[in-house]
Computed example of a mutant assay.
Amino acid sequence: MKETILITGGTGLVGRRLAALLAKDYNLRYLSRTPAGSNQFAWDISTGFLDPNALKDVDHIIHLAGENILKKRWTEDRKIALIESRVYSTKLLYTALEKAGRTIKTFISASAVGYYGAVTQQQAFSEEDPAGTDFAAELCMLWEKAADLFEDPTRCQRVVKLRTAVVLSAEGGALAPLSLPIKLGLGSSLGKGTQYMPWIHIDDLCSLYKYALTNTDVAGVYNASAPEQCTNAQITATIAKYFNRPLWLPNVPAVALKLALGEAADMLLEGSPVSTEKIQAQGYKFHYPALDAALKQLLKKEE
């Protein structure tokens, strides 16, 4: 008998790729605001509704849902929406599980390396380091705290939280906006360019979710980032190399990004390396540990 996984955020970039990876070995269900299939079930975070049929015989929950943090300026209303999509959705899942009187084997929640805050330093952050003090860090901290509700042994046997770096994919995400100006011959680094930009190939991220799912000794929080740590300038230069484009323009001024994005610009202008020693010590081997090989595979696929 195949085990059953309930996935939130299944229509997103990571959700689609992860579903393709898991479909052969698991029965998959999805939560959606507009369900359109027999394996899709309704939920509404704003009203606190979740179809109880979604939880019937579910063994695992993978929680990916969350509004795009850089899609809009961080007005007060936008900040509330970002919190609701991550924190309230997690609490809704736990409440629904509690009402159903069910116990699942695994709850795996997305988080982000933004947990450590928009700061630039040379020393890599490990999972034991404290949260930062800016909004993105506070958002991640609240997100993870909500996931900790599932530490209740009467409802869940194991909780995993993956602090995700910038996801590189040929199908969407950060790579396209990073690549487009370079293709047009207008590429340049952001701000000083010396800020780190932790990244991960989408195949590694999805493999990490599956690894966390199938290895019961994996529990707690892990940095989901490639081992090789690169600055924004290094990533920009490596992409330019593959498109054979010069980088002749000066760096994009920090003030321009702040005018365009407001407070959210700090996520692009600051960044530190993060350690992947913990997940590697658990036995995970990265398919794309280095940027050069990751971009070669992704950009070749894009051509």
Rank of each mutant, 00 (worst) to 15 (best):
E3P: 02
T4M: 03
L18W: 11
L18T: 07
L22E: 05
D25Q: 13
N27K: 12
N27V: 12
L31C: 07
L31D: 07
S32C: 11
S32F: 09
P35G: 06
A36C: 11
N39Q: 15
N39I: 03
Q40K: 12
Q40S: 12
D44F: 07
D51W: 10
N53E: 14
N53D: 14
A54K: 02
A54Q: 04
A54I: 04
K56Q: 14
V58A: 04
V58L: 08
V58H: 06
D59P: 00
D59R: 10
D59Q: 12
I61A: 00
N68H: 14
K71V: 05
K72C: 03
K72H: 15
R73N: 13
T75Y: 09
L82W: 07
S85I: 09
S89W: 08
S89C: 12
L97F: 10
A100F: 05
A100Y: 05
G101H: 09
T103F: 08
F107E: 00
I108P: 00
S109G: 12
A110S: 14
A112N: 02
V113F: 05
V113T: 11
Y115Q: 01
Y115G: 00
Y116E: 01
A118S: 15
V119I: 15
Q121P: 02
Q123L: 10
Q123V: 11
A124S: 15
F125A: 04
S126M: 08
T133D: 11
F135T: 03
A137W: 02
E138L: 10
L139M: 10
L139T: 03
C140A: 14
L142W: 11
A146T: 07
A147W: 02
A147K: 02
A147S: 15
D152I: 13
T154R: 07
T154K: 12
R155Y: 10
R155P: 02
C156F: 11
R158A: 05
V159F: 08
K161C: 04
V166R: 01
V166K: 02
V167Q: 03
V167P: 00
L168F: 15
A170Y: 04
A174P: 05
A176H: 10
A176K: 12
L178S: 03
L178E: 03
I182R: 00
I182E: 00
K183C: 07
K183D: 01
S188D: 04
S188Q: 09
L190P: 01
L190Y: 10
K192V: 09
K192F: 05
T194K: 14
M197V: 15
I200P: 00
K210H: 13
V221S: 15
Y222A: 00
S225P: 02
P227T: 11
Q229G: 02
C230D: 06
T231M: 03
Q234K: 11
I235F: 10
I235S: 01
A237G: 02
T238I: 05
K241Y: 13
L247F: 08
L249D: 06
L249T: 05
P250C: 12
A256L: 15
L257G: 07
L257S: 09
L259I: 13
A260I: 10
A264S: 14
D266V: 08
M267E: 09
V274D: 03
E277N: 13
E277Q: 15
A281V: 06
Y284T: 06
K285A: 13
F286C: 03
L291K: 03
L291G: 03
A293H: 10
A293I: 11
Q297R: 13
Q297M: 10
L298R: 05
L298V: 08
L298S: 06
L299G: 06
L299F: 09
L299Y: 11
